[in-house]
Design a protein around this nucleic acid. Structure first.
Lengths: 199, 199
DNA sequence: CCCTTATAGCTTACGATGTAAATTTATTTC
DNA sequence: GAAATAAATTTACATCGTAAGCTATAAGGG
C-alpha cells in the first residue's frame, strides 16, 4: 500500500475495473456485474473500488463512455476507409451495425435509457457526441456534393434514428438474427432516395 | 378470506396490481416498483401477490402486455380515423409517437431489452404482435394502391425501425423535447418517397 | 532511526430487495 | 361443532449497494 496513489495508479485501477466490468457484462450478463464480483475480479475487497469511483453508477458511466469511445473509433475507421459521401454513408452504417451486433452488451448498456442522469457524467456525454458526430458527418459532405437536400441536423438525425431503430429491433430479437444489416441497407437506400434533390 | 378464489377474483387482483404498478412507474419511477411497495398499494402483505403471480418478472410481463394492448388500441383507433394508405401511415405514425411521449414509462418498459426471456410470456408476445400488425398493415394497402414497391415485411420493418428509433432518441433526451414528432414526419416523408415505384 | 501521521485498503454492519418456509387465520365440508 | 384446507401473514435468509470504523503501511520530521 503505497502511501499516495499517483495519477497513473488511479487511471490504471479504473481501467482494470472497467475491463472487468465489460468482461462480466459480456460473459455473464448484467446481473453478474455487482460490486462484490467486480472487486473479486481484481482480487480486492468489495469496498476498495469506492476509492476510485463515486459509486456503482459512476462505474457504469465510465464503462458506457469507454463503449462510446470504441464505437466512435470503429465509425471513424469506416469513415476513413472509403471516399465519396454516398459510400461513406453506407460504410459508416455498416460499421455501426457491426459494432452493435458484435458488442451487444456494450451497445445495450450504452443506450440503456433506464440509466441515470447522463448529465452528471461529462466524459460520457463527450464520448457520445464524438460518436454522433462521426455518424452524421457524411451527411454534410452529401449536402455539399448535392446528393441530398434539406436540413443538415434533421437528415443526420433521420439516419441515426434509422440505424439505431434497426439495431434495436435486432437486439430485441424481433428480426431474423443479424437482420439489422439488411434492414439498414434498405433504410439507407430508401432514405437516400427520399432526401435527393427534387427531380 | 374466502376459501376459494373465483377466476374473477384472481383476474381482479391481477388487474388491480398491474394498475398499481403502472401508477408507481409513472409517478415515482422504476425503482419505486418493489414487491413491498406494490403490496402496500393494495393494502396487503408483501407475499400476497405471489398467490397471483409467479414472481416479479411475471408481474412486469403482465404490465408490459397491458401496455402493448393500450398501444395497439391507440394505433387501431388512428388507423380507423382516416382513409387512404398514405394518410393512414401518417396517422398511425403520429399516434405511435404520441403514445410513446405521453406514456414514456410504459413505452420504456415495453421495449426494455434488459427484460428477461420474453418467450416465457405468450400473452406478452401476442400483445406485441397485435401492435406490430396494426403498425404495418397500411403498408400492405400502400403496396396494393401502387404507392410503394418492394417486400411487404421489409418495408413494414423499415417504418417500424424509423418510428421506434425516433421515439427512443427523444425519450433518451437526444432531441429537443417532443422532437420525435417532427423527426418522424421527416422520416415518413423520405421513406415514402424512397420506396415509391421507380419513375 | 524511530515515532508520528496520513491514507489505501479491509472488515464489519445496515437497510433494502426478492422470495422460500413456516405459521396463522378463516371458510367450507362433514 | 370439528376437521380439513386454502388464503394470507409473519418470519427468515441470501444478496445487493454502501456507510462507518479499523488496520496496516509508507512518508516525513525530530
Amino acid at each position: 500500500m503505497p502511501r499516495v496513489l499517483s495519477e497513473t495508479d488511479v487511471a490504471d485501477f479504473r481501467e482494470r475495473l472497467c475491463e472487468a466490468a465489460e468482461r462480466l457484462f459480456a460473459e455473464r450478463g448484467p446481473d453478474a456485474v455487482t460490486m462484490r464480483q467486480l472487486a473479486a475480479e481484481l482480487g480486492v475487497s468489495p469496498m476498495t473500488p469506492y476509492r476510485y469511483f463515486e459509486d456503482k453508477d459512476d462505474i457504469l458511466a465510465a464503462v458506457r463512455a469507454n463503449g462510446f469511445s470504441r464505437f466512435a473509433e470503429a465509425l471513424e475507421t469506416a469513415r476513413a476507409s472509403v471516399v465519396g459521401a454516398r459510400a461513406v454513408g453506407s460504410a459508416v452504417g455498416k460499421a455501426y451495425v457491426e459494432f452493435a451486433l458484435s458488442n451487444p452488451h456494450a451497445y445495450k448498456l450504452m443506450f440503456d435509457f433506464n440509466q441515470p442522469n447522463t448529465e452528471k457524467y461529462p466524459e460520457l456525454v463527450a464520448a457520445g457526441l464524438r460518436a454522433r458526430k462521426t455518424m452524421t458527418a457524411h451527411v454534410e459532405d452529401a449536402l455539399k456534393e448535392g446528393l441530398m437536400e434539406g436540413d443538415l441536423q434533421q437528415i443526420g438525425l433521420m439516419f441515426w434514428a434509422a440505424v439505431h431503430g434497426a439495431v434495436i429491433l435486432d437486439l430485441a430479437g424481433m428480426l431474423p438474427p443479424g437482420g439489422s444489416q439488411q434492414l439498414f441497407q434498405s433504410l439507407d437506400a430508401a432514405l437516400t432516395r427520399g432526401v435527393r434533390p427534387q427531380d
